Amino acid sequence: MNETTRSPWRLALFLATSGHSGVDRIMKNFIAALAKRPVRVDLLHVHGHGPYLDRVPTRVRVVSLGTRHVQSSLFKLAHYLRTERPDALLCDKDRVNRTALMAAAMAGYQGRVVVRLGTTVSKNLENRGLVHRTMQYWSIRHLYARAHAVAVPSHGAAEDLHTIASFPPGFVRVLPSPVVSDTIHTLGREPIHHPWFAPDAPPVILGAGELCERKDFATLVRAFAALSHHTECRLVILGKGKKRQALEKLAHELGIADRVWFPGFVHNPYAYMAKSRLFVLSSTCEGLPVVLMEAMALGIPVVSTDCPSGPREILHHGRYGPLVPVKSWNQLAEAMARVLAEPPEKEELMTAVSRYHVPSATDAYLQLLGYGASLSSTS
């Protein structure tokens, strides 16, 4: 079949994100890149969940499943797969993955199902309840084998999965996340109308992410307090979450509340990144931290905890930015001071994350999903 008569290859995306996470940004980039290719995309939507698209691109169809929870989407998803029969299905996060795999089995679906996990699972589950931990370990060990492959963003995350389940060689695939786009630079140039970002203001140190235990912004606040004793600077932490009140209280207790700002969730974090002097990741656990790559893509110096997993891979074992032990606020403060005094070259940082450019990362995902193989088989 030639290119003009072949039916467009169709990919279904089953996602249920918070609307403001790194996964949201990754999937928005992925969807935008798919829209530029001869691919039809069905974005299967659960009410109240992201990703939320400002504009739905051509070749992208939003399919409402008419449900409010992932688990209650099982039968609707099975019906969709049975009747629509897309060429492939991609989903992300465990509760979404296990629902998709059960629905595919119920529907007798013959297309490729690729499930994605963006975190280091065992580390992420350490502080979760017994039921949550048991359910996720069970689904990984007993359901994931039904998929064509499991995609993860880092080698550390892949190694962790292999300690949880006995997957065959090549089943867990490390794929670069589609993070770096031209849009980052355009959005980075937008102004911020706040005196802390004026050209002659003291340097701003930036953190960003959900205000939760895993991101450990308390360690960043403590490190900033130590740094600010001898360096004039400001700390801005973007994001919302349950830990906001505790973090604000900590800033007051440390006597730095007038130098710390929590703007909450912002639609354009890149404008803040581009105008900051330093970006700091203080997490205890990651898969492959999107914000770290985004900051480097803008040429902003970074410091990170050496958490499992991702930062060590992104920073090439510390070549492009210091790696400090998790929860070590004093070592984090020292690393922040060093980088502020002697920042690396902007171009070097940007080159270091070139493998995460959206077009090449999208190609890697499409290959795993069978896009090239499907076209070859119908040529």
Rank of each mutant, 00 (worst) to 15 (best):
W9T: 13
A12K: 03
A12F: 08
I26F: 12
M27T: 10
A33M: 03
L34E: 07
A35D: 01
V41C: 15
L43N: 11
H45I: 12
H47L: 09
V56C: 10
V56H: 07
V60Q: 09
R61H: 15
R61S: 13
V62E: 14
Q71D: 10
P86V: 03
P86D: 09
D87F: 05
N97V: 08
L101Q: 04
A103W: 04
R112I: 02
V114K: 04
V115M: 04
T120K: 09
N127P: 00
N127H: 14
G129N: 08
L130F: 13
M135C: 01
Y137Q: 01
W138Q: 09
L143Y: 07
H155D: 14
T163C: 01
A165Y: 02
A165R: 00
P168Y: 08
P168L: 03
F171A: 03
S181N: 05
T183D: 09
I192D: 03
I192W: 02
P195L: 02
A201I: 07
A201H: 08
G209M: 06
C212D: 08
R214T: 07
K215I: 10
A218V: 03
T219I: 03
A226C: 03
H229C: 08
H229Q: 15
T231S: 06
C233M: 02
V236M: 10
K240S: 11
Q245W: 01
E248F: 02
H252V: 15
L254Q: 07
D258E: 15
W261H: 15
F265N: 14
K275L: 04
S276W: 04
F279L: 11
L281W: 01
S282L: 01
S283C: 08
S283L: 09
T284E: 15
P289V: 05
P289G: 14
V291G: 01
M296D: 12
M296E: 12
I300S: 01
V303G: 13
T305N: 13
G310E: 08
E313A: 05
I314D: 11
Y320R: 03
P322E: 00
P325V: 02
V326F: 13
M336R: 06
L340S: 09
L340Y: 13
E345F: 00
E347C: 08
M350W: 06
H357W: 03
Q367T: 06
A373N: 11
